[in-house]
Amino acid sequence: MPRMRRKHELPQKVCATCGRPFAWRRKWARDWESVRYCSKRCRGRD
């Protein structure tokens, strides 16, 4: 089993709407390259 990573070790991006940095999440593992927003709220604002 792979070892756990700390949050600061995960890849990060900047949200296209609010400009805040957000970290990789397991649910985004398949399409991390296409993730642009940190939340559903930011996705709805753009």
Rank of each mutant, 00 (worst) to 15 (best):
M1I: 11
M1S: 15
M1L: 14
P2L: 14
P2M: 13
R3T: 12
R3N: 11
R3L: 15
M4Q: 06
M4D: 02
M4R: 09
R5L: 15
R6I: 00
R6L: 06
R6V: 00
K7A: 04
K7V: 01
H8G: 01
H8I: 04
H8P: 00
E9A: 09
P11T: 12
P11L: 07
P11R: 11
Q12E: 14
Q12T: 15
K13D: 14
V14E: 14
A16L: 14
A16S: 13
T17I: 01
C18W: 05
R20E: 15
P21A: 15
F22Q: 04
A23D: 03
A23G: 11
A23E: 02
W24N: 01
R25A: 13
R26H: 07
K27E: 14
K27I: 09
K27F: 04
A29T: 10
A29D: 08
R30Y: 05
R30S: 14
D31S: 07
D31Y: 03
W32A: 08
S34E: 12
V35D: 07
C38N: 09
S39R: 00
S39W: 02
K40D: 10
K40A: 12
R41Q: 13
C42W: 03
C42L: 02
G44S: 14
R45C: 02
R45D: 01
